[in-house]
Design a protein around this nucleic acid. Sequence first.
DNA 1: CCGATTGTCTACCAAATGGTAGAGAGCTGT
DNA 2: ACAGCTCTCTACCATTTGGTAGACAATCGG
Lengths: 183, 183
Amino acid sequence: MSAATDGPSTRERILAAALDAFADRGVEATSLDAVASAVGVRKQTLLYWFPSKEQLLLGVVDHAIDELGRELGVAATAAGADRRRRIEAVVDATFRVGRRRPELLAVVREATRLGPPASTHLADAVVSLLPEDIRPQALAFGAQVVGIATEAEVRADLGLPADLAWLRSRRRALLAELTAALA
Amino acid sequence: MSAATDGPSTRERILAAALDAFADRGVEATSLDAVASAVGVRKQTLLYWFPSKEQLLLGVVDHAIDELGRELGVAATAAGADRRRRIEAVVDATFRVGRRRPELLAVVREATRLGPPASTHLADAVVSLLPEDIRPQALAFGAQVVGIATEAEVRADLGLPADLAWLRSRRRALLAELTAALA
DNA sequence: CCGATTGTCTACCAAATGGTAGAGAGCTGT
DNA sequence: ACAGCTCTCTACCATTTGGTAGACAATCGG
C-alpha cells in the first residue's frame, strides 16, 4: 500500500475533518456523525480508530500541536544560529500559520476552554515538544499567540476591518516579549 | 412586592445562573435542566421567561454587556474630564472586572465563538452602548481585552503562574493602544 | 367576589447523540 | 486453500436534550 497512490489514510482524514469541525463549530456542537459524513465514512469507523469522542479530541490536539511544532521548528532552524533572527523567524512563521491554518490555533483555544482532560493533554503535548531551557518562555509565547488569534476573531465579529497597523502592532509586541524573555 | 424583601426576580436569577454556566462550561455543553436546577426551578420555568435556549443566550449577552458597560461607564465618569485620567480609569476598571467577574468576558468570547445570531446580537448590544465618536476605538479595545483574558486563561491551563510582570505589561499595552487610538 | 392574568409545575415527546454488538469483505502469510 | 487479521459496515440502544401541552395555584383589577 503505497501512500502516494492511496492518499491520506482513513485515520488521517478523520483527524483532518475533526480538526476542521472542532475548530469551526466547537467540540460539543460537533457530532461524530457530522465528522464521519465529512470524511465519507460511517460513525463506527471513527469509533474503530478512536474509541470515543474524547480520544478523538486528544488525537486532534496531538495532531495540531505536531503540525504547529514542525512548522515553527523548521522556521527556527532555517533562520540559522543568530538569536535575533531565530526569534523573528518564529514570530513570522506564527503569523503565517495563523493566516493559513487558523484551525490549528482555534483548536488549541478550544482545548483550553474545555478543561481536562483536553487541556492537560494539550499542555503535555506542548511541553514534550519544547527544549527544557526555553520551556516557560515558549509556553508564554504560545499563550500570547492564542490571545492574539482570539482578538483577531473578536475584531472580525465586531465588524472591525482587517487592519495592517493592528497586525504590525501585535507582531511588534510578540517580538518584544519574546526577546525580553530570552534575554 | 418590594424588591428589597423579595430579592432578585426569577428572571434575574436565571440570567445569573445561565451566565455562570455558559461562561464556565460553554453554551452547548450547558443543558437547560442544568441551569434550571442551579436556579432551583424547573426547566419549563426557564422556557416561560425565555422561549428558547437561543433567546436565553441573547438575554445573557445583553445582561453581561449591560453590566460591563455600566461598570466601565461609572469608572470613566468618576475620573473626571481629563482624557489621560479617563483612559487610565477605564483600563484599570477593565482589569478589576476581569479579576472579579471573569464570566463577563468569558461569555463575550463565547458569543463570538458561536457566531450568529449570538455574535451579531453581541455586536449590536456593544455598539448601542457606545457614543458614536469613539465607536471603532472602543470596539478595538474590547477585542483586545477579550484577547488578553483568553491569554490569561491559556496561561493558567499551561501551568504558568500568575505573573505580575505579565499583568503590568498587558496593562501598559492597553493604555498605549487606547491612548494612540484616541489621539 | 369573580374573571383574567401571571408564574410555576407535571407529563410527555421527537430527535439526536455517543456508544455497543457483531457480521462480513478483503488482504496476508503459510 | 485457508486461518486470521484489518477495516468498514448494518443494526440497535439508552440517555439526554430542547421544546410542547396543559393543569393548577396565586394574585390583581373591577
